[in-house]
């Protein structure tokens, strides 16, 4: 069972969300990926306006509308626009089919301004995915590092949170969130550097490691290789490839009456 935590509509052929998701599903079939989580739309900006958030969420809603048996959506929200984000959580999750939220680079997640978004998502049992990087070349002004995520996770110790990209520089990223047991890591969206999954399983345990690809900018292939090529027990591999994501999603899926 392979479930993919981290999928986008950008970087893909096709002029509409429907065309793009149909194409991605062909590749997913070829690679044995059964279910996929989509967030963010076809055109991105580092600091999206409320209208941008609505538009991008609309595109994801449209894309997944014909794929309810395979595709999930996370609502794209921003700590720069808390009220608009809460409205989007209401529209897309509380009153819509989405099952999580995505936070990107508009503001650091260590800032307490984000707390209202986190608390509302937690109330709905929505899965929380925060992009993180440790860039030796320098993060964007609003780009969170895994240490920012640790700060957030310690303010909300009962809320499961996913550390996107494992911070990119995963030797630092894994260490940064190691002590926060409510944080899992997303393996998608960085080079298939050998050893990452072995270190993650050793330091965090396999239940805190989740496969994702970051398609269409990345390939399924390079990101699946991190799990398929890792020297880890098969039981750990199964957890990482799908069982952990399913476990995190089950509470909200059950509330929505979605079978999984």
């Amino acid at each position: 069972m392979i479930w993919d935590l981290h999928c986008h509509l950008s970087g893909v052929d096709g002029s509409t969300p429907d065309e793009r998701i149909a194409m991605l599903m062909e590749y997913a079939d070829r690679m044995g990926v059964e279910r996929l989580v989509f967030f963010m739309g076809m055109n991105w900006s580092h600091e999206p306006t409320p209208d941008d958030l609505r538009q991008q969420n609309h595109e994801v809603l449209q894309a997944i509308s014909h794929w309810h048996d395979r595709a999930f959506g996370f609502a794209y929200v921003s700590p720069q626009h808390v009220e608009a984000s809460l409205e989007e959580i209401g529209r897309c999750i509380a009153n819509g089919p989405m099952v999580g939220i995505k936070l990107w680079v508009a503001g650091k997640c260590s800032d307490e301004a984000i707390d209202a978004i986190i608390e509302r998502a937690a109330e709905l049992k929505a899965v929380i995915f925060q992009h993180t990087w440790f860039k030796v070349t320098g993060n964007l002004p609003g780009e969170s590092s895994p240490l920012d995520l640790l700060t957030l996770a310690r303010r909300h110790p009962q809320v499961p949170i996913i550390c996107g990209h494992t911070g990119g520089d995963w030797e630092r990223g894994i260490r940064a969130i190691r002590a926060a047991s409510n944080v899992s890591i997303g393996l998608g969206g960085f080079d298939p550097t050998a050893g990452v999954t072995e270190m993650a399983v050793r330091e965090l345990g396999a239940r805190r490691v989740i496969y994702g690809s970051d398609i269409g900018g990345r390939s399924f292939a390079s990101q699946l290789a991190k799990v398929k090529g890792a020297d880890i027990p098969d039981k750990a591999r199964q957890l990482i490839l799908g069982q952990n994501l399913r476990r995190l999603l089950l509470p909200i899926l059950r509330e929505k009456g979605i079978e999984a």
Partner: peptide
């Protein structure tokens, strides 16, 4: 071995 070798093989498959 800097990259997992499976990355290249899976790209051919994808």
């Amino acid at each position: 071995p800097f990259f997992y070798h499976e990355s290249a093989s899976l790209k051919i498959e994808e």
